[in-house]
Design a binder for these strands. Structure first.
Lengths: 332, 332
DNA sequence: CGCCATCATGAAACCGGTTTCATAAATACA
DNA sequence: TGTATTTATGAAACCGGTTTCATGATGGCG
């Protein structure tokens, strides 16, 4: 493993010149450059990443903090992030936090201790204040969440629009009694989806029935519980907007067990367009997020921030409705 | 951001002593140690990772090479890897290769260029020879694949056993005409599963019908094509062993379209126990791999290799059969 | 022809740890 | 009491790049 000085000696130049050739920016005589390049090739020289980092105080890598590594779409997000970053010759360090504030903070500290050049954070449990503080000292992109104080650092989906699209689709089919099974409302995405649901109803002059809104926690289990609770009510409903696909799946389990036909007796819309959504029976109508585009924008934005740019706030990404088989007109 | 020399000055000792206190192993006078620790606390000192890496020639992190980051179970694997590694204060760098040999090699080179202390490789496209060579120069763990020359570096599932379990389950139900829709047979996992299928049949004295073995590529699409081809044959079959759950899902799509009842007319077994498997109708009987345990063993083994240990070959991990609803006795 | 700007290059300092080696003090042993 | 051994510590070299600053060579311009 040759060092820069060995290359320099081989090419009869100084280490400084080899360094300049490696960078490529500063002017070097063509003949000299040729000799150096030949030496590099002959010796199979590759610069030592540690020495480079120490001298330049940049690590050449960014960190990714993720609440739920095993979540349904992290793979798609990471895939695009990794590809975009590597194209820029930047490596990706991953740390997970399991959705607990303490462990997520640990993950951040861990990556910061590794002197990452920047951070992409996809975490629920960290506070807005903490993220805003972090953004002041480190290039930071917040994924799938909006923090008002640092809008320019946030890549997120317009969840309100997604909730609206789902609900309006049901309204368009003629439904008037639509329940909503939400995620944890302290989380922004869940709250946004609910707001969209409410806007769609109001827009059509339909009174929002607070009893028909049940808060869950995005798990299948809570979808089951919510659906069971809705069925136990006296008030009739003909459709349900679920907080995400997992909750919708839970709801379907209950409906199947009770012999409620989908979509004949009850229509259902999910959110996220997980892999499963296409495969269940009937196939789940759901809301799709352009995750790959979001991830690419996140990576590119972070790279610019690392390079010192200051950027305007991005526009939110827009969800689309995927129509499948769980929605139909109400019985009558 | 104080340096070690500032801490040293504050505590009226030399940088060497501070370094020793940080490490904790070498003997330092209790009183001196106390002063140094106080200085560290007072100044909020944290050692510079680059300088440390440069001097010690260890980066304190390992690389993960993954063919398909968005695959159905990478999340579960990464989650356990990350947690195990971080407990040892080792960071995880991720690089993907999209299943192409060239890009996977690039990913390896990229991580090696970053001077990772070791590598976990979960890749189909890299050759056995390449991996064996790599293992000679770098601490390496190969995940979900067996390379005979470097058995001690491989963490893998006994796929032969998985194929056997799936097939024997069908045999136990009374099936005698069982087809097999395999993955790409140049891949070890697909070939292993097929071998298990064949062993189970032979064990019961059933002639293996080569016409009933169709090679696919683990995609849903190839499951559809395979199933269609099987239905087009004259020879009757009452059950199918699929190479993985995706192929089983594809097969189900075709069967549903043709009005073939599962499991009344045809039984079906998948492989991998993806999230979907529980949710499809009927719920898919499949083979489950203990991914978390495998990932933990992989991480721990790599850490030991990095530390310089030389280890005996691990025992293969054993799959289990998850019985759900796609298998029943044959009609007649 | 002489002066100043430009270009190409090398020497050396620097980044901030780790590690070796030497030394000084303390203890053990005869 | 004198020598051998252990223990604690500091000085300085070292890891391998980057970057600043100085110097020498070239060339343009009045």
């Amino acid at each position: 493993m040759p060092t820069i000085r060995e290359v320099a000696a081989y090419a009869s130049v100084s280490a400084a010149t080899v360094s300049r050739v490696m960078k490529g920016e500063v002017p070097v005589n063509a003949e000299t450059r040729g000799r150096v390049e030949a030496a590099i090739a002959a010796l199979g020289y590759a610069p030592n990443a540690f020495a480079r980092s120490l001298a330049s105080n940049r690590m050449g890598g960014v960190g990714l903090v993720i609440s739920h590594l095993a979540g349904p779409f992290m793979g798609r997000v990471m895939m695009t992030l990794e590809a975009t970053l590597r194209r820029a010759n930047v490596s990706l360090l991953v740390a997970s936090g399991g959705g607990e504030a303490g462990r997520e903070q640990e993950a951040v500290d861990f990556l910061l201790g590794r002197r990452c050049d920047g951070l992409i954070v996809h975490a629920d449990a960290l506070s807005d204040a903490m993220l805003a503080t972090l953004a002041a000292t480190t290039p930071l992109v917040v994924f799938n969440r909006r923090v008002l104080e640092i809008d320019a650092h946030c890549i997120y989906l317009d969840n309100e629009c997604g909730g609206y699209l789902a609900t309006r689709h049901l309204l368009d089919q003629g439904h008037r009694h639509i329940a909503c099974l939400t995620g944890p409302l302290r989380q922004q995405d869940a709250a946004g989806r609910l707001a969209g649901y409410q806007r769609a109803l109001k827009e059509r002059g339909i009174q929002v029935d607070e009893q028909a809104i049940l808060e869950g926690d995005f798990t299948e289990r809570s979808g089951e519980q919510g659906m069971a609770a809705l069925l136990a009510r006296a008030a009739p409903i003909t459709a349900v907007v679920a907080g995400n696909d997992d909750m919708a799946l839970g709801a379907m389990t209950i409906l199947r067990a009770r012999g409620v036909a989908i979509p004949q007796t009850l229509s259902l819309v999910g959110y996220d367009n997980e892999a499963c959504a296409r495969h269940v029976m009937p196939a789940l109508t759901t809301v799709h997020a352009p995750l790959e585009e979001m991830a690419q924008e996140a990576a590119e934005r972070l790279l610019k921030l690392v390079a010192g740019a200051s950027l305007p706030a991005p526009t939110p990404f827009m969800p689309t409705l995927i129509e499948r088989e769980t929605v139909g007109p109400p019985l009558s």
